[in-house]
Design a protein around this nucleic acid. Sequence first.
DNA 1: GTTATGACTGCGA
DNA 2: TTCGCAGCCATAA
Length: 119
Amino acid sequence: MSNDNFFHRVYEVTMLIPPGRVTSYGAIARYLGSPQAARMVGWALNSSGSCTHWVPAHRVVNRNGLLTGKVHFPGRETMKELLESEGVKVEDDAVVDFEKLFWDPVRELDFDQNPPKPF
DNA sequence: GTTATGACTGCGA
DNA sequence: TTCGCAGCCATAA
């Protein structure tokens, strides 16, 4: 959209995550076309501070629903607090009902842009 | 210019 | 079952 930068893509997708929902690095990477580039997603979020827009990085967790990136937040409980403040229950650094709250950009965005064909 | 690393994921032994 | 390795792309040094 704005730029072809991989980082910016991550920012946009991450910012599209509805409140109270979470997604995984792999889901975003997969939406970008490189499921195995999930590392880059985390790296992008790490640089999210360089982005002029606020990026809800706390809504992005690993495939297991663990808040692996919480260590990069100002506070140890910052990520948890943010998620809980949005209605997401977090227990032991893991998102409760992760698969329920899971928000897949490929499923939500691509689905809307590309209506499913009558299979 | 090259080299190393990173908030991950999937598969093999 | 758990443990280990390879792949991916971009940034930083």
